[in-house]
Amino acid sequence: MRANIKNSGLFGLLLLLNAGLVSAEELAYVTNEKDNNISVIDLKIQRVVRTIDVGLRPRGIVFDLDKSLAYICVSRANRVEILDLKSEKIIGHFANIDDPETIVLHPNGQTIYVANEDQAKLSVLDVKQRKIISQIDVGVEPEGLAISPDGSLVVVTSETSNMVHWIDTATNKIIANTLVKQRPRAAEFTDDGKLLWVSSEVGGIVTILDTVSHQMVKELSFSIPGVDRVQPVGIKLTKDGRYGFVALGPANHVAVVNRHNLTIEKYIPVGKRVWQLAFNQQQTKILSTNGVSGDVSIIDIESLTVIKSIKVGSFPWGVAVRQHN
């Protein structure tokens, strides 16, 4: 009996180890803006395994710290919905959030920032109280949102005012504003928190800003022969400091930036109107949502090629990946 228990415990441990080594099952959650649902992709078999209905016009999506919940901006329903990832049911929402588009979670796990596209405001939400605790006036059409790795700064870009607002999370006050090129869409901190990358969709460039001086360090421009509309949108930066990936919208390509010399290493063709990007846990793959073609491209980071294109719903917008044991 005793031996049996021991054995089963060992067996369980072996299973767990095995799972860790072989890599756990990974699921990608893709918000379909026009289908009002989420496609769940199993990255191992590279297929949509199910869809989950959510509110009207889902866009930004973020997980809580232990990745058991997802917070989803459902723009037309004016709320942020809470999806339990185990039961795959909506278990609640933050109400009266006007036209939420993008969302980030503070490293404290308790504070959520949401850009209200129609209201020129950034809303600060408290998870426990499940409501807005503060609203910050920002420029017209706030969109790109990012939080510094240490949680001290949140930045929001305003598309129409062509500005990056730097906000102190301790006081919820704007401490600086930086003008960037036309229609800034996305922002991403480097893992050391020293630099911020901002994409300007109409300006056609990515601006790299110093997070202390708030000034420009470098501008990256993109050019693909025979392609007219090169419009940078989503940005992701690898933890190892090697690559920056930039989704180029209607150019239907993802640019690969070599971060050691800040040159463009490659343009990878993906689906139509590529929008947002997300890494898998190990950062061996990066996924792109392609709005017009209604699919997700999976790029292998070692070979920098698309290994699979997966049909999802109508106008996929946001994407987030988690491991699932």
């Binding site: 017209v140 129409t160 003008l179």
Partner: peptide
């Protein structure tokens, strides 16, 4: 109006 919103930060 929109420029005055942006202008207030500058």
């Amino acid at each position: 109006n929109e420029s005055n919103i942006a202008g207030k930060f500058l």
